[in-house]
Amino acid sequence: MTHPRLSLNQATIKYADLETALRVTADAGYQSIGLWREPVQEVGLDAAAALVRDSGLRVSSMCRGGFFTPLEGPERRRAIDDNRAAIDETAAMAGAGAAGSRPVLVLVAGGLPDGSRDLIGARERVGEALGELVDYAASAGVQLAIEPLHPMYASDRAVVSTLGQALDIAEPFPAETVGVVVDTFHVWWDPEVLTQIERAGAAGRIASYQVCDWATPLPADVLLSRHYPGDGVIDFEPMTRAVAAAGYTDDVEVEIFNQEIWDTDAAAVAAQTASGFETAVAPYLQTAPVSAGR
Rank of each mutant, 00 (worst) to 15 (best):
Thr216Ala: 07
Asp231His: 15
Asp235Met: 08
Trp189Pro: 09
Tyr209Arg: 05
Arg205His: 08
Met239Phe: 13
Ala242Asn: 07
Leu224Phe: 10
Met239Glu: 11
Gly201Cys: 04
Ala203Ile: 10
Trp188Asp: 07
Gly230Ile: 03
Val252Pro: 03
Val193Thr: 13
Glu237Gln: 14
Trp214Asn: 08
Asp190Phe: 14
Asp231Arg: 13
Pro229Ala: 01
His227Pro: 01
Pro217Cys: 03
Thr249Trp: 14
Thr216Gly: 04
Tyr248Gly: 00
Pro219Arg: 08
Arg205Gly: 06
Pro191Glu: 03
Cys212Leu: 06
Asp190Ser: 15
Ala203Tyr: 11
Asp213Leu: 10
Glu255Ala: 14
Pro238Leu: 06
Ala207Asp: 01
Ala244Asn: 06
Gly230Val: 02
Asp251Met: 14
Ala244Thr: 15
Asp250Asn: 15
Gly201Lys: 12
Ala203Asn: 11
Val243Glu: 05
Glu253Asn: 15
Gln210Lys: 09
Leu223Met: 11
Trp189Val: 04
Pro219Ala: 02
Pro238Thr: 05
Asp235Ala: 15
Val243Ile: 13
Arg199Phe: 11
Ala207Trp: 03
Glu255Gln: 15
Val193Ala: 09
Glu192Ser: 15
Asp250Trp: 09
Pro229Gln: 01
Asp221Val: 06
Val193Ser: 12
Glu198Met: 09
Gly247Trp: 11
Ala207Tyr: 05
Phe236Met: 02
Asp190Val: 13
His227Val: 00
Thr240His: 05
Val193Pro: 15
Gly204His: 07
Arg205Lys: 09
Val252His: 00
Gln210Met: 08
Pro191Asn: 07
Pro191Ile: 06
Glu237Ala: 15
Ala207Thr: 05
Trp214Ala: 06
Ala246Thr: 06
Tyr248Asp: 01
Val211Ile: 07
Glu253Phe: 09
Ala220Met: 05
Asp231Leu: 08
Ala203Met: 13
Tyr248Ile: 02
Val211Trp: 00
Val233Lys: 10
Asp213Ala: 08
Arg241Trp: 11
Ala207Ile: 00
Ile234Ser: 05
Gln196Tyr: 12
Pro217Ile: 01
Val252Cys: 05
Gly247Thr: 07
Pro229Val: 02
Gln210Phe: 02
